[in-house]
Design a protein around this nucleic acid. Structure first.
Lengths: 109, 109
DNA sequence: CATACTACTTAGTATTACTATTTAGCAAAG
DNA sequence: CTTTGCTAAATAGTAATACTAAGTAGTATG
């Protein structure tokens, strides 16, 4: 899907939070995951900037450990602030989602 | 609803296009409409910048006419490019919406 | 004449995703 | 031993977009 860039703003951060919330993971794996579920146009670099931003906001617990293959990985889990932000994200998303559906429905009347 | 700013990026433009697509309207009315359906935090200035952007992209037909009350209004309708963009917007929105639902569902498994 | 409501504009800022490049560890092929 | 390829992370610079805040103006009401 092309041209999602602007729509992704704000959303991508939520997706990454959600993925981390499902269990310890790291940047490269998150990138692969996004590709696999259909976000083919999201580049690696983009994911890492999101992760660094989330780190800066102190929403993540970080642990750098050696990998069995390749260079060391930074493993992430959500801390309490991260879990809170994730909840907030879904609240906002569902609010917006509901509104947009209403607006669209209004069409056929 | 607070803190929607980042989620609104890309979406607001679509909402405005949709509103114009439902019939000739103008900035102030669009602002009132957004307030009325629950987007209380979207300021007037924001709507006007969206409208000017859409004008610049040549997605709108514009007509400045006198108002019965107050200063003249700029009345907008969608031109063909505008209708096309609106369709594209909904495509992108529903793609994203479906993905997000899938991601969220995955939770309960 | 002052106030309120209508209506639009614009300058400056913050946030965020993208592109492109860089650095680096490890393994297998040649 | 060198090259290639995959894994893994970081970063500088750019573009798009919503926000804040302030301003300009027309009309009506008291």
């Amino acid at each position: 899907m092309k041209g999602l860039t602007e729509l992704l703003k704000g959303v991508l951060e939520g997706i990454v939070l959600q993925k981390i919330g499902q269990g310890e993971t790291y940047g490269y794996e998150i990138t692969q995951y996004l590709q696999s579920i259909g976000f083919e146009d999201i580049a690696e670099g983009t994911v890492y900037t999101v992760l660094l931003r989330l780190e800066k906001k102190e929403l993540l617990h970080v642990e750098k450990r050696k990998s069995e293959l390749g260079p060391p990985r930074k493993f992430y889990t959500l801390n309490d602030s991260g879990k809170y932000e994730l909840d907030k994200f879904w609240e906002k998303w569902f609010f917006l989602s509901r509104k947009l559906n209403e607006i669209k429905e209004n069409d056929s009347k």
